[in-house]
């Protein structure tokens, strides 16, 4: 058996968390409901259509949203996009885990671009779901609101603006590097930045 990635005394309390589970497939939804019940959740908001889920988003406070990509009345990607743009605070900022059955690479990018925090390919056994819940709870990325995107910051590595663009953020820098205007730092200066020492006197 694979070693558990969790510490033996690590705890989770989902009993009163507001969790929305959206899956149009009856058995798929039942599997999710049972999994979360096993995790200790009392009453998840279970929905089989996006319309139903939109009602829950408007009426309840949510801590986590779990959505299947294959929803009958609006696909899962569109639902997440709606949530991020029109869901209203605080639910529009809730962590979203998107579950995908048949997945093509283009659909993974769609998952990232619709504003989901995580995209998980099926099958999703309890261990995998638990890891994703923990990851989502430790999510520290900033939130971005732009005309074409609303969701967690997709630039989770400091790589600057997308290639071929100037960038739209006030702190985006040009890719062109100019001449240095001050002398280089020596190693002591650099060390001091990482290990500051108390000033004497």
């Amino acid at each position: 058996m694979a070693a558990s990635p969790f510490m033996s005394n690590e705890r989770i309390n989902l009993s009163n968390a507001g969790v929305l589970l959206l899956d149009s497939h009856a058995e798929g939804l039942e599997l999710l409901v049972q999994m979360f019940a096993g995790f200790g959740m009392h009453t998840p908001h279970r929905c089989t259509t996006a319309a139903e889920a939109q009602g829950v988003v408007r009426d309840r406070e949510l801590n986590l949203v779990v959505v299947d990509t294959a929803i009958t009345d609006m696909d899962g990607y569109e639902f997440v996009k709606w949530l991020r743009l029109s869901g209203g605070a605080p639910n529009r900022y809730a962590p979203v885990i998107l579950l995908a059955g048949h997945t093509k690479a283009s659909q993974v990018a769609r998952g990232r671009d619709c504003g989901a925090n995580l995209v998980v390919r099926k099958p999703v056994p309890p261990l995998v779901m638990m890891q994703r819940i923990i990851w989502a709870s430790k999510e520290s990325r900033s939130f971005v609101e732009a005309p074409n995107y609303c969701g967690p910051d997709r630039r989770f590595r400091a790589m600057g603006p997308p290639v071929g663009t100037k960038g739209r953020r006030h702190d985006d820098l040009s890719v062109e590097i100019g001449e240095a205007k001050t002398p280089n730092l020596d190693q002591d200066d650099i060390d001091a930045m990482f290990k500051p020492k108390k000033a004497a006197g």
Partner: peptide
């Protein structure tokens, strides 16, 4: 809540 091991077993 539960320990994660209990939660996984329950699920």
């Amino acid at each position: 809540g539960k320990t994660i091991a209990e939660a996984l077993r329950g699920a």
